[in-house]
């Protein structure tokens, strides 16, 4: 039985709170770049950017990061992960890069994302924002900004669906 963990309103509140936390931790947004991890993280990054922009009255750059080529399971999987585009609107050198993903699980995607970002330049700091932290880390990785902590069991799936994909905003446990 699928269970709704966050509805449209909850997601909106989570984005708002995370935005405030990002501003507070970084004492503003002057050298921030949000890097959304393909695919789920990209939408969340855009939402955070527009909220941050609204609060601070300035435009926040949003990059798109594809991690397929940095994954640690390429030699194990039968099917290769789909390679998508990577695009940064600016040189990331010296910027504070906030990696953004929809769900934090084993931490392996984030490890790959950190390697991918380091190949693009040398940010002054890398932080992590996720909409949902479902636990079960396999690497020493911790998010700086979390929309909601949700304890799960390993056989469950957390699905984030967003209006950008033509669906109703919702986080579901299946």
């Amino acid at each position: 039985m699928p269970k709704v963990l966050l509805d449209k309103k909850d997601i909106e509140r989570a984005i708002t709170r995370m935005s405030h936390e990002i501003i507070e931790k970084n004492k503003g947004v002057s050298s921030i770049l949000l890097a959304g991890i393909q695919r789920g993280g990209v939408h969340i990054a855009r939402r955070l950017a527009s909220k941050l922009g609204l609060i601070e009255g300035t435009e926040i750059p949003v990059g798109i990061l594809d991690i397929a080529l940095y994954r640690d399971d390429i030699n194990v999987r039968k099917e290769q992960p789909v390679v998508r585009r990577t695009h940064m609107p600016a040189e990331i050198h010296g910027l504070k890069v906030v990696l953004v993903d929809d769900v934090l699980f084993t931490g392996r995607s984030i490890r790959a994302a950190m390697d991918a970002i380091m190949d693009l330049g040398r940010p002054s700091a890398v932080q992590l924002a996720v909409l949902v932290d479902r636990g079960h880390r396999e690497l020493p990785i911790k998010a700086d900004f979390v929309g909601k902590n949700i304890p799960t069991s390993l056989d469950e799936t957390v699905r984030v669906q967003l209006s950008e994909d033509g669906l109703e905003d919702m986080v579901v446990l299946e």
């Binding site: 080529l69 990577t86 190949d119």
Partner: peptide, 23 residues
Amino acid sequence: IETAAGFKDVLGRDIKKVPALRG
């Protein structure tokens, strides 16, 4: 063709190498 578009991004960077097929 679609996958190649992602690799063209890689070729535009300073570090033009990815670890995908190590070993």
